[in-house]
């Protein structure tokens, strides 16, 4: 992206055209771009298929809140919405890895260090 003050740069871009990160499915689509080198359309179609929703739902915080809770993909804790019983932080990445069927490096490293079975060769 680039530099500049956060509100005028990142904040403006995310509001103007960003998927929304964990508010929606931006982090999930990003993972398909990074891990599988998928272009945007293909990545959105892949994630939508795995989640059982439409590509447009992926940028819709209202739709994605329910899907993320249902599948344990992590939600944002803030004043009026804290869910310590839900998967968050690295916990959510275990579920993201399973749902998207991709290895997540930090999850595989975690498993190595605590003696859990690995799902992928990393």
């Amino acid at each position: 992206m680039g530099t500049g003050d956060p509100l005028g740069m990142e904040g403006a871009h995310t509001q103007a055209s960003g998927m929304g990160g964990m508010r929606t499915a931006g982090d999930l689509v990003a993972r398909m771009q990074m891990t599988r080198r998928m272009r945007l359309k293909e990545a959105k179609a892949y994630v939508a298929d795995k989640l059982g929703c439409t590509p447009r739902d992926l940028s819709d915080p209202s739709a994605m809140e329910q899907i993320r809770i249902e599948k344990g993909l992590g939600t944002l804790p803030f004043t009026s919405s804290v869910r310590p019983g839900e998967a968050g932080m690295i916990e959510a990445k275990f579920n993201i890895s399973q749902v998207l069927d991709i290895p997540i490096n930090s999850v595989e490293r975690f498993k190595e260090r605590v003696g859990l079975a690995s799902s992928f060769a990393v």
């Binding site: 344990g72 998967a87 275990f94 579920n95 399973q98 859990l116």
Partner: peptide, 15 residues
């Protein structure tokens, strides 16, 4: 134990 439960939503037997 809570981590195992939350991170194993899809395949708890593996965690």
């Amino acid at each position: 134990e809570r981590f195992r439960a939350k991170a194993g939503r899809r395949r708890p037997a593996q965690i």
